[in-house]
Design a protein around this nucleic acid. Structure first.
Length: 546
DNA sequence: ACCGCAATAT
DNA sequence: AATATTGCGG
């Protein structure tokens, strides 16, 4: 609060008379710069000794409006000490060292601007802006919550915590506090340039940091939202006409994005990019790699590494829930994996289901797909496997080309060659040789394979049996065969039976529907015949609703 | 608000 | 190749 709005209002010829503290590493450069400042009618007090400068501001801090401090590369903390102890004084840092890290460090420590040397009058002319800025923002909470993550990110990147900031407790996460009067300066060309270097890395979407939608997901997924939120906040803030530093904020935010490798929790995420600092030139002071755990606010969603273990959890959850209840949110709950999002689960679940039902090649799918409306379509999709039971007169392979079942890939990669896909949900009609997932002795794989139960499946629920009426021959014979063929996976059995159940119900209730896959056969007549043969003569009145 | 699917992006 | 994201319909 060197200068209040009031002061400014009464300061007729502002910024003339601005009291500038100049701290240079040597008298020569001080003597060089001082005249330039004075040429603008600034009132300059030059120092070459940091401690002297500090005592000057401590003894009469009110007598300076702004400080221009050289960062001396040679002398350790040269300049920083002043910076950190002159919290109330808008401080511009200058240096011959154009290294990005230095710049950021200065800004992070509260400098209002960083100017590359040599200092021209042009660069110095408008330093008064900071004083004005401060005057108008000193009391207001400049550091909004939204900036906290940004701050943390930068700090983390620079590893300031390990360096020099014993006294600087701010970034830890507490105070975004307005008390620390230092605020980022109007961006300078240099700064922008420098920061841009940082984003050449690999954050493609950063350019449009704007509105990432997803804002919808405030739900339980206490995950990587923070940065996005930050982003939004930044944007909204940048709408403020009084805020001259949009670009800088954005860029800084980008930095945050870049440094998003930190995830504190389990091994869900792949730590893929730590290259962020690579563009950093050789700032040796803070060149250590960013500790990945420092950042809580990791930016965009990280790619989940669906390790076998994780997948196991997933499958376990799915099984616990049962197929009907296995929806992303519940699975997510059951899995209890920190950082995992519903989207992650949904995505995985989608794939999981896909492979369970062994999507047929589109071509074939098309054959029977357009036969009916959406309902019909989904019906076909769901039932197709069952319908593919080789009818007496058809060789199955002509109807259902055996898909390949990749097996779960070990994240380690050694088992990459293994088929990762588990058993198809309904492998019945597939030639045995395609059951890659089958026990596979010696490979710990199979348990992780898609669709392969990790837990003994719940014995009880075989929903299909809950229909006393719907156990026509088809079910019977098929089920029996199935069991004899595929005792390995009771889950599959379960699934198959469930599907059978559905099909039977469907067949009973809608005998008029064509069967998928162009299986001519059993179709209506056969089914009906079978039903009657089994003594089931009472076919529910075929109401669509049933 | 969430689910599921398909298409598409990364 | 594996995932994530998006768009759409439900």
């Amino acid at each position: 609060m060197v200068c209040t709005v009031n002061d400014l209002q009464q300061w007729k010829d502002f910024p003339k008379g601005l009291k500038v503290l100049l701290l240079e590493g040597d008298a020569t450069s001080a003597a060089e710069i001082k005249p330039k400042l004075e040429a603008m009618d600034y009132n300059v007090s030059a120092f070459c000794d940091e401690n002297e400068a500090l005592s000057a501001i401590s003894s009469r801090s009110e007598s300076f409006h702004i400080a221009i401090v050289e960062v001396s590369i040679n002398s350790g903390q040269g300049g920083f000490k002043f910076l950190e102890n002159a919290k109330d004084l808008p401080t511009i840092m200058t240096s011959n060292d154009h290294c990005l890290s230095t710049m950021m460090k200065c800004i992070a420590l509260g400098a209002v601007e960083f100017l590359h040397k040599p200092l021209s009058e042009d660069k110095l002319r408008n330093i008064w802006q900071h004083v004005v800025h401060k005057a108008f923002n000193a009391s207001a909470s400049v550091m909004s919550e939204s900036l906290k993550p940004v701050k943390e990110s930068v700090v983390s990147m620079l590893q300031l915590q390990t360096d020099n900031e014993q006294q600087e407790s701010t970034y830890t996460d507490d105070d975004p506090d307005p008390g620390s009067d230092k605020y980022p300066a109007p961006s300078t060309p240099q700064l922008n340039q420098g920061l841009r270097l940082m984003d050449d890395g690999d954050c493609p979407e950063q350019t449009n940091c704007s509105i990432e939608k997803e804002s919808g997901e405030h739900d339980g997924e206490g995950e990587s939202k923070s940065v996005e939120t930050t982003c939004e906040n930044l944007n909204s803030e940048s709408n403020n006409p009084n805020e001259p530093m949009n670009t800088e904020k954005t860029l800084v935010k980008n930095l945050a994005e870049g440094s998003r490798d930190g995830n504190h929790d389990s091994s869900v995420y792949k730590h893929t990019n730590d290259k962020v600092l690579s563009s950093d030139d050789g700032n040796t002071k803070s060149s250590n790699k960013v500790d990945s755990c420092t950042l809580k606010a990791h930016r965009k969603k990280m790619k989940i590494d669906w390790t076998p273990e994780l997948h196991k959890k997933f499958v376990k959850a799915v099984e616990q829930l049962g197929l009907d209840q296995a929806i992303p949110s519940r699975i997510l709950d059951l899995m209890k994996v920190e950082g995992l999002t519903r989207h992650n689960v949904a995505s995985h679940l989608q794939k999981y289901r896909m492979h369970k039902r062994q999507i047929l090649p589109k071509e074939e799918g098309r054959k029977w797909l357009n036969q009916r409306d959406q309902m019909q379509r989904s019906y076909c999709l769901q039932q197709r496997p069952i319908m593919a039971f080789p009818p007496p007169n058809h060789s199955n392979h002509t109807l259902s080309p055996a898909p390949v079942y990749p097996v779960w890939r070990q994240s380690g990669g050694q088992a990459a060659a293994m088929p990762v896909w588990g058993p198809p949900g309904y492998p019945l009609w597939h030639p045995t040789e395609s059951w890659h997932w089958k026990p596979l002795p010696g490979l710990q794989m199979h348990a992780d394979a898609w669709g392969c139960p990790v837990l003994p499946p719940p014995q009880a629920p075989l929903p299909c049996f809950s229909y006393p009426l719907n156990v026509p021959g088809m079910h019977h014979t098929s089920a029996v065969d199935y069991k004899s063929i595929m005792p390995q996976s009771s889950l599959d059995l379960h699934l198959a039976e469930e599907v059978v159940d559905k099909v039977v119900k469907e067949a009973i209730s809608k005998p008029w529907l064509p069967l998928p896959l162009g299986l001519k056969p059993p179709s209506t007549d056969s089914v009906l015949a079978e039903l009657s043969r089994k003594g089931i003569s009472t076919i529910p009145p075929c109401s669509k609703g049933s």
